[in-house]
Write a protein that binds this DNA or RNA. Structure first.
Lengths: 185, 185
DNA sequence: GAAGTTTCGATACCCAAGGTTTTGAAACCT
DNA sequence: AGGTTTCAAAACCTTGGGTATCGAAACTTC
């Protein structure tokens, strides 16, 4: 049982700066927008070296994805009925995308992924798949229906964000829920 | 009335190369993706100089928007009922986004616009507004409802395109129509 | 305490791509 | 012929993602 708690690996341990980097990433994206939130600026905002960021995240895209994973956390799948579960999930992701920097970062990394199959794979497997699986389980729907649901909800929220620069207002989120729910009876 | 038909401006007239540039833009984007479809490569594909492109379009974003305007053309608002009009419009834009290069170009310029308020303005006023006004007129819906409709339809189609790299299949476009129509009675 | 290993900060660097500038020639007008 | 605009070609600038190097710091084990 010597490896049940694997010994700390040799060498200098990493300092616990991930949270600081995530916070600086979101605030920098919020202030300057996605494209002008360069890795150099994010590093400067945290006070650490750019090389340290690239040692932990191989690309800017993976940094943003990890940052979003940290910002989102697990889906709260609350509610007694399927309708309540879907409704709360939609409002939850709408609220998250409305948080400062989150929507910009999401839309930005999403757009980078369009021309970058590697990043698309990261986005799909690390960010989308966990939520897709949780929703499949909670709603008892087949994969392609959940993928369609995610396309509709996230696509709509990001399109509004990208077109106006502002997150979707609550009235329109209500409309989104009202439109989606009947389709998934 | 000497200026009713304004005289041709002095100097060497522009050669009619816009169509060639648009075609080369779409094919280059289709082959290499949006980010790798550089202005230099597009120019090389047409055989004209990069400076000629920048003389006609101030930025890559405006070139792409003009290219999309040319590729889309006017919305066909056919059908006797509101349902038929909406259905045909949704299938029309889905088909256009599925054409080679169009979806990539659309998603790419859209994502650039996230961090670029100037490009966002161009995208909104030159590309979205004409279709929004035509739909408002044809469907008799207020502006915010049409904006919501565009967010849902275009957002969903682009999210699928960005996440998978492939346009949405017909079955899912059918589902999109089926979901949207009842909401707009 | 010394050797080995890994992280850190700093700096310099490479490369791609958007965009500008310059120059000389060509095409059109009056 | 002179004025004006467009064109192609080339050099150039800047930004930003990502890499390479180096010495110092922080741990481990022997």
């Amino acid at each position: 049982m010597t490896s049940s708690t694997p010994a700390r690996p040799p060498g200098r341990p990493r300092s616990g700066i991930n949270d600081v980097v995530f916070a600086a990433t979101l605030s920098t994206v919020h202030e300057l927008g996605y494209a002008r939130a360069t890795v150099e600026r994010i590093a400067a905002a945290t006070g650490i070296a750019k090389t340290t960021i690239y040692r932990r995240w191989p690309t800017k895209g993976t940094l943003i994805v990890d940052c979003l994973l940290d910002a989102f956390g697990p889906v709260p799948l609350e509610g007694d009925s399927r309708a309540e579960i879907m409704s709360s999930a939609i409002r939850w992701i709408a609220g998250k995308i409305g948080e400062p920097g989150v929507g910009d970062a999401f839309a930005g990394v999403f757009s980078d992924a369009v021309s970058d199959p590697g990043l698309r794979e990261v986005l799909s497997s690390r960010l989308q798949d966990p939520y897709r699986l949780a929703l499949q389980d909670a709603l008892g729907e087949p994969e392609h229906r959940i993928l369609f649901l995610i396309d509709v909800v996230v696509g709509t929220l990001l399109h509004r964000m990208g077109m106006t620069g502002e997150p979707m207002v609550d009235d329109d989120v209500d409309a989104l829920v009202e439109m989606v729910l009947p389709f998934f009876h």
